[in-house]
């Protein structure tokens, strides 16, 4: 799974979570760049990533995510080759 695939899958997760179709992700994006990305939304995204990519986050991993790039790297390191299993669309 390439990084571009991961970004595309993540964009679907973000769009569903924020209920906005105009979310375009870059590696450098942080919570300050998307209005409404608070701790609740952050956990919503993490739990959706767990479901889609079929792995479990640890607490330090979630605590250390500072940007979309960090999230992409964790997904790359932890997800299985056949993931994502499903990407829901709204």
């Amino acid at each position: 799974m390439t990084e571009q695939d991961r970004i595309v899958a993540l964009e679907t997760i973000f769009r569903n979570a924020f209920r906005r179709n105009d979310v375009v992700l870059t590696r450098e994006m942080t919570a300050w760049d998307i209005p409404g990305w608070d701790s609740l939304m952050n956990m919503q995204i993490m739990l959706d990533v767990e479901k889609v990519f079929r792995f479990r986050f640890t607490v330090p991993e979630v605590a250390n995510v500072r940007s979309v790039g960090d999230l992409i790297d964790i997904i790359g390191a932890k997800s299985k080759p056949h993931a994502p299993a499903k990407t829901q669309t709204s």
């Binding site: 956990m43 993490m46 739990l47 986050f57 607490v59 605590a63």
Partner: peptide, 11 residues
């Protein structure tokens, strides 16, 4: 509370 209670509870 976010790091030591909320996040572990969510996960």
């Amino acid at each position: 509370f976010r790091v030591y209670v909320f996040t572990p509870l969510c996960l």
